[in-house]
Design a protein around this nucleic acid. Structure first.
Length: 652
DNA sequence: CCTGTCGTTCCCT
DNA sequence: TATAAGGGAACGACAGG
């Protein structure tokens, strides 16, 4: 079923993230690259896993095609109307008054390495290891080498390839230099990752009476003067388009799209959808194979089908892409919703090793959380098996935690339930943060102290901690605080551990402090929201800091719910006064049921793991994916484009 | 029906 | 010789009020 047409050229059907052409890959012999990748890959566990994933995607596409086939003419004309209305609304939101510039450093990590070691210049270079490449310079790209490709394959493609291990301290340093330049041209510039930024250059262009070309030229020169590195720029009426434009004349080039509706539409018309930020491999594939959409223009032509088959949210995004719309206003500061860390190692099922590794991961997560003064109550354990199958297991607690000990404690329980298992990766994610009102002030203070100490150091670490950075800008010397600085270092292994040691103690104190006044009330509320009504809830306050209040009890000891001093629940610390006999009974039952259920599921996991999981999965996907499309009647509420971007895609 | 939880999918660099 | 990342958000299913 999964076998597709190319029996004699099997490599043609194997596509990975890095087989997709990027800037600088024009003269590449794609066929050869593809064949080498295939030869090096086939038979590996990874390869098998990729094939499995491809089969799933194919299934998904088949389902969508079947669904599309069911649409009647009547359906279509109905959705055409809906589509037309949406398009009118979207068009009305078009704003051509702003000029945005997107700047993107050329092969950033590789360029920095070359700067530090001129002997590398002109030679094919990859930053990374034999396992994984972060960046390749343009000489290497000629061979088909690129980011996200494993090094051993790259080496096969380009035997003379030089490898340099990543050094994020250096990249951060140079990144800060570029930001110093951006800062001069737009104090409110938006940094994305280490090597990208958006600048609103409307004012400057107008005030200084210079053209966009001149501006982009000047900026790129200034960056070069400051850093010795080249960058590319794109200028357009919104951020989404600016980003597309900066890729067009890479490296060391620029592309300007005028603020003119016709220019935008003709630019967008032939643009492949994959160029749009937010449209990745899967979405591209789906839209192409199900609806025959290849270019942005076709988004509009197939608007009715899009409306019929995708959620409101997705549809509006697709249509706005077809119109060449994008955000023009200041970026909304969305608060971080989760924080995570993960590590890959050579696959093993030795439990002592796994628990040791888990402790490391827990420690890293705890430190990362403390840097940002975060406490969360949902902990997710991510596992990747030796066969590259990924699993997540989560617990939601009744209290907020951040310490290594707490994290490790709950994470261990989650892990135990899955063992024995051969793993190659473990990760931990915390979400459901406490959002008390005290925090922002404390963060501001933290920022203040830290920046007083050493503003540059604090940059990378504070950013993203809350939605309040803007107001803090005066405090840091250079105002680099930005929502997304901490976001970028994707390939980093330890990028974040480099420079912040000095913050720990202070952050720690503040977190400690939070703890003491924060969560008692929260926990009671949470726990009681299940079982008690508000008036009773009033009377319960103060709970003891028992750490066993979580929803999971995998312990084999049959713990009976106990009432300490007759009114404090030994399991979660809730206090139910003596008169509340009924409630206490109910509460005990609740814990009991929970434990039974948990034990049950643990047993299941242990002994019936395969069948159980499979059953679950088929139930979910088999039935589920068919009905997911909403033919919802409330199509007419128009969501403003700004709001859409907040909610659905963070694309800019 | 609404909401919280959990697992998966997707995207980005 | 073997060798394939790490981080974050959104989505979709489902269970419990």
């Amino acid at each position: 079923m999964g076998s597709s047409s190319n029996g004699d050229r099997p490599w043609q059907s194997y596509h990975t993230a890095y087989t997709n052409a990027k800037a600088g890959m024009d003269g590449v012999d794609k066929e050869k690259v593809q064949r080498v990748i295939y030869e090096m890959s086939k038979g590996s566990k990874y390869f098998e896993s990729e094939k499995r994933k491809e089969a799933f995607l194919k299934q998904k596409i088949d389902n969508l095609q079947a669904q599309r086939a069911k649409l009647t003419d009547k359906d279509i004309s109905h959705f055409q109307q809906i589509c037309d209305k949406k398009v009118v609304d979207l068009e009305a939101s078009r704003d051509l008054s702003k000029i945005w510039l997107h700047s993107d450093m050329d092969a950033f990590y590789a360029a920095v390495e070359t700067l530090g070691n001129p002997a590398l210049r002109g030679k094919p270079l990859a930053v990374g290891s034999l396992s994984m490449i972060s960046t390749a310079n343009y000489e290497a790209r000629k061979f088909g080498v690129r980011a996200a490709m494993p090094g051993f394959i790259a080496q096969k493609l380009c035997p003379d390839l030089t490898f340099v291990p990543p050094n994020f301290e250096k990249y951060t340093y140079y990144s800060n230099l570029t930001r110093k330049v951006f800062q001069k041209y737009d104090p409110n510039f938006i940094a994305m990752g280490l090597d990208e930024a958006y600048l609103d250059i409307t004012e400057t262009c107008n005030n200084r009476g210079i053209s966009r070309e001149e501006f982009a030229d000047e900026l790129r020169h200034a960056v070069y003067e400051e850093t010795g590195l080249t960058c590319s720029a794109g200028v357009a009426p919104n951020r989404l388009l600016a980003k597309v434009c900066s890729d067009i004349n890479k490296p060391n080039g620029q592309f300007i799209l005028p603020n003119d509706r016709n220019a935008v539409l003709s630019f967008i018309s032939s643009l492949p959808i994959r160029k749009i930020g937010g449209i990745g491999k899967v979405t591209e594939h789906v839209l192409r194979d199900v609806l025959g959409i290849n270019t942005c223009e076709e988004m509009l032509q197939k608007g009715a089908l899009l409306c019929a088959m995708f959620s409101q949210c997705s549809t509006e995004f697709f249509l706005s892409v077809g119109l060449g719309l994008g955000s023009t206003g200041p970026p909304q500061h969305t608060l971080r919703k989760s924080i995570s860390t993960e590590r890959t190692f050579s696959a093993t099922e030795e439990e002592s090793f796994l628990f040791e590794k888990l402790a490391d991961v827990a420690e890293t997560l705890s430190k990362d959380m403390q840097k940002e003064c975060l406490c969360g109550r949902t902990l997710t354990l991510k596992l990747k098996t030796a066969t590259f199958e990924v699993r997540n297991r989560a617990v939601s607690l009744q209290k907020y935690i951040h310490s290594k000990e707490d994290i490790l404690n709950y994470a261990s329980k989650l892990l135990k339930a899955e063992l024995p298992l051969s793993l190659r990766l473990m990760g931990l994610r915390m979400s459901q943060f406490r959002d008390d009102n005290l925090d922002p002030m404390q963060k501001t203070l933290t920022n203040f102290f830290i920046s007083g100490e050493d503003a540059t150091k604090s940059l990378t670490c504070i950013s993203k901690s809350s939605g309040l950075e803007i107001s803090d800008k005066q405090i840091t010397n250079n105002g680099y605080l930005d929502s997304s600085i901490g976001n970028g270092s994707c390939f980093s292994n330890d990028s974040c551990n480099v420079s912040y040691e000095s913050d720990y103690s202070l952050s720690n104190l503040l977190v400690e402090h939070n703890n003491n006044d924060g969560f008692g009330v929260n926990s009671v509320d949470d726990a009681l929201s299940v079982k008690s009504n508000p008036s009773k809830r009033e009377k319960m306050k103060e709970l003891i800091n028992f750490s066993e209040g979580e929803a999971v009890h995998l312990s084999n000891q049959k713990v009976e719910p106990l009432w300490v001093d007759d009114y404090i629940c030994a399991l979660c610390g809730i206090q139910l006064p003596p008169s509340f006999t009924e409630e206490r009974q109910e509460h005990s039952d609740y814990h009991l049921a929970e434990m039974l259920q948990k034990e049950e599921s643990t047993k299941m996991t242990r002994h019936l793991m395969q069948p159980e999981r499979l059953v679950e999965r088929t139930k979910k996907t088999g039935e589920g994916s068919r009905k997911k499309q909403k033919f919802s009647p409330k199509e007419d509420e128009h969501i403003p484009i700004e709001a859409f971007f907040i909610k659905c895609k963070k694309s800019l």
